[in-house]
């Protein structure tokens, strides 16, 4: 990175550190922070969407849809995350490939399952075996997003389901008395009011999601915890220009600061949202705001 880094053995300590912290390997570490933030930025709305769908389905009067929503909430919440991540992702990936295989290679005569191997024709591979590495990484990333969204969506669905029931029933009845249809009551009365009840539960989920990102490595995505372990491990002078002892503690300390800082910022933002949502609501928070305004 810097020009003086070429003779790394004679560097004064500060410059050595500057060179050390800008190796290609460290760049991978810094980039993985972006990966994690991007994952959170995409997963959170996606999970909310899954949750909203699940909760609406679980409230539905259509029986099959109702069962589907309730089964989704119950099953996904009940399966341990790690089992879900190991089993479901491989199954999902194989399901995609199986479908592509049926479409693209109809005259394939060999069995797809050969002992332990899962063999589909080359054209059905996802991504194709010939694809460059970044395509594989992007694909893995999106499979990770989808899995996270399904898992956290189930928890969000349960939170939203509860929040929808917490909206005072009198409000719904009044809306119906005014002649609103089911759909209108749902979108104009129920949904705008439920968020204030859902937010505490959703903010918990968000915090858990932030901390769950190391599960990414199970899916082959190199996340910050992987790099911290890799970079912090003892570096033998035979294999690196920047040898050092076991520095994992320092790397994990950096992660600690990152996670704590990130959750703190989240808390501040969530507090603001809560204040805004409480405005004009028939809740204790909303009442407090009304009083404060009256006093002023």
């Amino acid at each position: 990175m810097f020009e003086f880094c070429t003779d790394h053995e004679t560097l004064p300590r500060l410059q050595w550190l500057a060179c050390y912290l800008t190796t290609g390997k460290h760049m991978g570490f810094y980039a993985s922070f972006g990966t994690v933030l991007l994952l959170l930025a995409i997963t959170a709305p996606a999970a909310l969407l899954f949750g909203f769908g699940g909760a609406s389905a679980a409230r539905s009067r259509l029986l099959p849809l109702n069962w589907l929503g309730k089964a989704y909430i119950a099953v996904v919440r009940g399966v341990p995350d790690i089992a879900f991540f190991l089993f479901f992702v491989i199954a999902l990936d194989q399901a995609f490939e199986w479908v592509r295989h049926q479409v693209k290679c109809p005259d394939w005569d060999q069995p797809i399952r050969q002992g332990n191997d899962f063999v589909v024709c080359a054209a059905a591979k996802l991504p194709l075996g010939t694809a460059p590495q970044w395509v594989h990484e992007t694909y893995g990333f999106f499979v990770a997003v989808l899995t996270f969204a399904i898992v956290f969506g189930a928890f969000a669905a349960n939170v939203l389901f509860g929040a929808m029931r917490a909206v005072p029933h009198a409000q719904i009845e009044t809306a119906e008395a005014y002649g609103m249809s089911h759909r209108q009551t749902f979108w104009r009365v129920l949904v705008p009011q439920m968020w204030v009840y859902a937010l505490p539960g959703l903010s918990n989920l968000w915090m858990v999601l932030i901390k769950a990102t190391p599960l990414l490595f199970l899916l082959g995505v190199e996340d910050i915890v992987y790099w911290a372990r890799e970079l912090g491990g003892t570096a033998n002078p035979r294999f690196t220009d920047y040898p050092h002892g076991d520095w994992r503690m320092w790397y994990f300390l950096a992660l600690l600061v990152f996670y704590l800082g990130f959750t703190r910022i989240s808390e501040l933002v969530l507090d603001r949202i809560m204040r805004r949502l409480s405005h004009g609501q028939a809740t204790a928070g909303g009442e407090a705001q009304r009083r404060a305004k009256g006093a002023a």
Partner: peptide, 25 residues
């Protein structure tokens, strides 16, 4: 992309057999 690519899987944590070097390769 080009054809005939073979993907080589390794651990990248077992020097001198395989490891990640300073430039991340």
């Amino acid at each position: 992309a080009s054809a005939d690519t073979v993907r080589m899987g390794t651990e990248g944590a077992y020097p001198p057999w395989n490891f990640i070097n300073d430039s991340g390769q």
